[in-house]
Structures are given as C-alpha cells and as structure tokens.
C-alpha cells in the first residue's frame, strides 16, 4: 500500500469553518491519506469531526480514523499533548504506524 502524507498548514485551515474542515479531512481519509495538521485541531473541532465521521461511516469502505499524535517514550510536562500543537489523523487501519517524539 502506498503511504500518502499531507502536511496541512495553518494557512490552509485558517479560512475554513468547522464543517469545511471536517469535509476536507474526511474526503482525504477516504483516499487513504494521513494528515498532519500544523497548529492542531481544537477539542471542539475534534468533537465535530467525530460526529461527522460517525454519520459518514458506511460499514464497507470508510470505517473512521485514528489519531496518531506523536507520543514521547516518557511523558513530561514539556511534551504533554496540551503543549503539542500538531494533530496527526490517519485512516482507521493505520494502527501500526507509530510516530514518536524524540
């Protein structure tokens, strides 16, 4: 399987409202693309994305996504998710892809 990664800059997402962001993400997930968001998604956007994803899951091709945020091998305040301004989203079957902060 070919791996496609899209880096999505803040410049690209700044102009989008929440619905547009969800459509943008889900349409790319459906083409097996991994998305890395500069600046990350905020919790409300993540909740909106979950709702839209649940509506669009068709129990055949599209089964949702996984958040693959880089995790440091050892947690510390400095590297906590709160300070990490990046969100990595992958199609649901990309569990094996691991991203680490080193």
């Amino acid at each position: 399987m070919d791996l496609h990664i899209n880096f999505v800059t803040e410049k690209t997402t700044r102009k989008m409202n929440s619905t547009q962001k969800c459509d943008f993400i889900i349409s790319r997930l459906k083409t097996d693309c991994v998305l890395v968001f500069e600046g990350g998604l905020n919790p409300e956007e993540e909740a909106a994305l979950i709702e839209e994803t649940m509506i669009q899951i068709d129990h055949q091709e599209f089964l949702g996504y996984k958040i693959l945020n880089p995790t440091p091998l050892r947690m510390s305040g400095l590297f906590s998710r709160k300070n990490l301004k990046m969100t990595v989203i992958a199609p649901h079957n990309y569990d094996h892809l691991s991203i680490a902060l080193v």
Binding site: I50, M54, I57, H59, L63, G64, K66, I67
Partner: peptide, 27 residues
Amino acid sequence: TTSIDYREFQQHGLSRQESIQRAKEAT
C-alpha cells in the same frame, strides 16, 4: 471513539449481520 470496525464484533463471535447492526447502532 473515532472509528468503528464491524469486523471487531465478529471476532467476539457475532455474525456478520449482527456485527453490522451493532456497528450502526454504535455510530
């Protein structure tokens, strides 16, 4: 959750039809 894969329910012994029904209710 962010993903629901009906095949996971099949691994718990549910039939394909039951699994898809459960997945639809789960979403």
